[in-house]
């Protein structure tokens, strides 16, 4: 790892995020996925989406994980990872970034949670390579129109 020290001077969002959060039990409506369910095969030549994930494309699913340190405080876009992430993906090379992340596009902006807080995200499943126009971040799996709540 490089001697990477990143100082960020981003303004915290003052607005409470509670209004954008999920109701206490959103799981009833959406099928619960786990990170282990996303890919069914791994090889040096790439990963393959699981049949379960592909069957949910266009539908709502719930996924639990950790929000990575976000690009900006006014987040409507963040990276959901299986484990808490020490690194900000946008300030380190995305080379140091695990492959099985999921990009989340929130229905409305929300204040980010601490990276050590486990959250549940519900959103519409989308698959395929896609480059975020603002950050240039490339993702393979996304949850669109998403909401989240801390667990």
């Amino acid at each position: 790892m490089a001697a990477r020290r990143h100082t960020t001077t981003r303004r915290p969002v003052l607005a409470a995020a509670a209004a954008f959060l999920l109701p206490p039990n959103p799981v009833a409506a959406a099928e619960r996925l786990a990170f282990d369910d996303l890919y069914s095969g791994w090889s040096v030549m790439g990963a393959s989406f699981s049949p379960r994930l592909l069957a949910l494309v266009g539908q709502e699913a719930a996924l639990r994980g950790y929000m990575a340190p976000p690009l900006k405080a006014e987040a409507d876009f963040f990276v959901l990872a299986r484990e808490p992430m020490a690194l900000c993906p946008f300030c380190s090379s995305d080379a140091d970034w695990p492959v099985d992340i999921v990009v989340v596009y929130l229905r409305r902006q929300a204040q980010p949670t601490d990276p050590g807080t486990r959250i549940e995200v519900v959103g519409r499943v989308e698959t395929g390579s896609w480059t975020d126009p603002d950050s240039g971040f490339v993702s393979q799996i996304r949850l669109r129109d998403a909401r989240f709540r801390p667990l």
Binding site: T8, T9, R10, P12, P69, P70, K72, A73, A75, E83, P84, M85, A86, C88, P112, D114, P115, G116
Partner: peptide, 21 residues
């Protein structure tokens, strides 16, 4: 249980704090 992750960031651009796990 897997490689140590000693610290995690608190909030956007916030300080790194001891990983509560």
């Amino acid at each position: 249980e897997g490689q140590n992750v000693p610290a995690v960031q608190q909030g956007s651009g916030g300080p790194y704090v001891a990983n509560p796990i």
